[in-house]
Design a binder for these strands. Sequence first.
DNA 1: TACTTATATGAACAAATATTCATACGTTTG
DNA 2: CAAACGTATGAATATTTGTTCATATAAGTA
Lengths: 142, 142
Amino acid sequence: MSNRSNDLIYKIKGYRLKNANEIERCDGTVLHEDVVAKVQSVMPIEEDLSDLAESFKVFGDTTRIKILSGLFEAEMCVCDIAFLLNMTQSAISHQLRVLKQAGLVKNRKDGKVVFYSIDDEHIKHIFDQGLARIMVNKKGKI
Amino acid sequence: MSNRSNDLIYKIKGYRLKNANEIERCDGTVLHEDVVAKVQSVMPIEEDLSDLAESFKVFGDTTRIKILSGLFEAEMCVCDIAFLLNMTQSAISHQLRVLKQAGLVKNRKDGKVVFYSIDDEHIKHIFDQGLARIMVNKKGKI
DNA sequence: TACTTATATGAACAAATATTCATACGTTTG
DNA sequence: CAAACGTATGAATATTTGTTCATATAAGTA
């Protein structure tokens, strides 16, 4: 398929092009330059995709998921959550900090007690979509 | 607020109850046992929440997010993706394996070339919801 | 058949991260 | 004021995880 007699070479990002649709090897060989170019033009910018990954990373921990799942139902203090999840107060406190920094929860102080609650309308949707996916795949496996 | 003269003590999961709504200290003190009990009864089971976290963990990586973002637009081979993300073929291949094991992508083989594509209708929704969240928060910060 | 290419994969390494432990901070209570 | 309590936090530790490197596999090509 490849016609090596065609020596019209372009340089794109360190890769050598042979013609409009074929790129010769450098390290990884791009087989479908036109497709890649089109995809690249449509994809969100790198910064947004990084932010998105960071966002999902916060959901990607069992403890934090459980905390959020609990807070969807009711505002709770740190001690409540620690009991609910059968974990130490310290561990919960650390994770609540992560959730707060991510803008997912907020807190209010009442004396010694600090109550945490959800602070983002989007996450419930995302949470439910994710859960729906789990359930469908669960059914599929049976 | 706490009435220490009431010595009616119950044992629940290693914690000592004082009365219906108050639990005395053990390690973490549960301040609102009624709330916790209600939340616990409504929350999804632990297994599903763990699966959900595992699911989001797969999204929680910039490389994998970029791969998915690309595959939303077009089927691509490993080399295409490596070029698109300016990463090594090996790194991409490893991540594609993760995505495949998670049931997010599938592949077909055409000669030497292996083409990957999206294999889950749910993830685009989740992806877009997440992106919407990013965008709103982005606006809010300006 | 020998060579090149596209992909996969195991091992090693570095970086990120979750929990524990000890302790500090701020608030309430006796 | 001193003691108890709820929470926060820094350091240490163990585990997880993403990438690289070397190499294996499999398919096309000369």
